[in-house]
Amino acid sequence: MSATFHPTDPAALEAGAMLPEAFFVVSRNEETADTFTLALRPVKAGAQRPFEPGQFNMLYAFGTGESAISISGSPEETDLLIHTIRRVGIVTSALDRLAVGDTVGLRGPFGSAWPMDEARGRDLVFVAGGIGLAPLRPAILHALAHRGDYGRLVILAGARGAGDVIFLDQLHEWAKEPDVEVRLTVDRAGSEWPHHVGVVTTLIPRAKFDKANAVAMVCGPEIMMRFTAVELAKSGLPDQSVFVTLERNMKCAVGLCGHCQFGPEFICRDGPVFRYDRIRHWFSQREV
């Protein structure tokens, strides 16, 4: 059972949803030139935070601030919390300066999860753009750990260039698993790049899955997710079977401050994972 905080329950706040817990950095790994992965362990024994695939934590770089970061590790391994972070601002740059043994504050896990129960018995199609592979990774690892529960696994990963692909070795490993199809593409490449070139949506018509019995989970820039949903619909997968995860500048993470409002939804509270038909309308609205 996850220790997810539900902000509609006032007891959740009393239980410490707003209070960061100290975690040690136990390892860090450079994924690309601007993306790194931190493995965190609670300073206090027994303070592990079970989570569901798709959820996020608020990581607090002491003295700098907090940032919402998706969990990118396996939900089956509760000892460590894994976060893959792209360095884009002052908080993520401060997190990038952390070394093994340093401490970081952590609140969470928060938010909705990928529909792993609903997807049982169906083919799973994961479509990732750039660092969007990180929030999908727990769902992929969960599906691989419970292989009998799901049908075919299709993993379509796109990135800007050859140097921007995260978890490249793991993508190659996943491709060796039975009934797992991995397709990798980059938007631009030199002639030495051995994989596909083109936007990630061009992989969808090539992927082999049961359109009548599949669930797609999509993470990447919003425009990429919108075009992905269009391409999935063209291939026969209805919007009700497509799930996306959204990102906004989250502050409180419990639906109180309103920073992450997206139309009628608060992404931290109602998301970040949404069924596409629920939020499709807001994707096409400017300034939302």
């Binding site: 601002g89 753009g129 750039g130 990447g220 990102e247």
Partner: peptide, 21 residues
């Protein structure tokens, strides 16, 4: 043409900077 337009948008640069401090 649509695929080329998406490539030109350089999807994986920029937007995350605005949403992730």
């Amino acid at each position: 043409l649509e695929a080329t337009r998406l490539q030109l948008l350089d999807l994986y640069r920029g937007p995350a900077a605005a949403s992730n401090p």
